[in-house]
């Protein structure tokens, strides 16, 4: 079972369903548009800000504000890539064609990850440049210290969100169940845990909060987060590895 055969097959699968275009397209459009909108609003607010707020003003991070919503479409992409196989019954056909389940799963995840990364990286650069244009006089340049890292990191963050979703969907199989857990988790629960002081210290180790650190260039004042941008992305990557490993183990053991 040549790995390249499985990669080509998975590429055909992913490019031949409409949900791929819809979810990735939506992720890009929402991230860029919302980022541009919030950047434009921030530009007008800047003059009314306190000196303290101005010190932690992070033009790069602001241009990535659309990520919080755009990542939901990335989650849908990651979930559907895997759970489509189950909801349609295609999984039995797929596993009959590729009986080595590790090769099957990692081939699928690899292709979907590569595609998600390509889209996420383009989205990340687009949202940065458009956001900076909106920020006008307060903008930063891609050459400024830490900015390029943040922009590439934004692409990596979106990609890891998708891969995490693929792992969870492989464990849960049902698209509705997977989305029903992932969407509220990333949109509500994580934010709540991160903003309530009692749970704040736990919340910052959740995948999205740890990972989104990579998009910051200016460290907020009185910041006591115990990891840096790459450390945060590393924590997120660890979550992703756990999710995909969990998916692999359950796929390996389960009857199709």
């Amino acid at each position: 079972m040549a790995v390249t055969q499985v990669l080509r097959s998975e590429w055909t699968k992913i490019r031949s369903v409409a949900s791929t275009v819809w979810t990735l397209g939506l992720a890009a459009v929402v991230t860029v548009a919302l980022g541009a909108l919030i950047s434009a609003l921030s530009r007008n607010e800047f003059d009314d800000m306190s000196a303290r707020d101005r010190l932690s003003f992070d033009p790069t991070y602001i241009s990535f504000a659309g990520t919080s919503l755009g990542q939901l479409a990335m989650i849908v992409f990651g979930v559907l890539v895997v759970s489509n196989e189950y909801s349609t019954g295609m999984i039995r056909t797929s596993l009959a064609a590729v009986p080595r389940r590790g090769t099957f799963l990692f081939g699928k995840v690899a292709v979907a990850t590569a595609l998600a990364f390509a889209v996420a990286l383009v989205t990340s650069f687009a949202t940065f440049f458009l956001g900076q244009a909106m920020l006008g006089p307060h903008k930063v340049s891609i050459g400024d210290p830490g900015v390029l890292r943040a922009v590439i990191g934004g692409g990596l963050y979106m990609t890891l969100i998708a891969v995490f979703s693929m792992g969870v969907a492989t464990m849960l199989r049902s698209p509705m169940l997977s989305l029903g857990i992932l969407m509220p988790f990333f949109f509500l629960i994580s934010a709540i845990l991160g903003n309530v002081s009692a749970t704040e210290k736990v919340g910052r180790f959740l995948p999205d909060q740890a990972g989104s650190r990579i998009m910051r260039v200016v460290t907020p004042l009185d910041d006591d987060v115990p990891y840096g941008p790459w450390g945060g992305l590393g924590i997120m990557a660890l979550w992703v590895v756990l999710a995909v490993a969990g998916g692999y183990v359950s796929l390996k053991r389960r009857d199709a």
């Binding site: 031949s16 369903v17 019954g89 056909t93």
Partner: peptide, 27 residues
């Protein structure tokens, strides 16, 4: 080659692409 369940197909994929992805996975 096996026909197990005629519905074991992604409905959003064309017949050609369905067969193509199976073909590619087996060279």
């Amino acid at each position: 080659g096996a026909l197990l369940d005629a519905k074991a197909v992604h409905g959003g994929r064309s017949a050609f692409n369905h067969l193509l992805c199976l073909a590619q996975s087996n060279g």
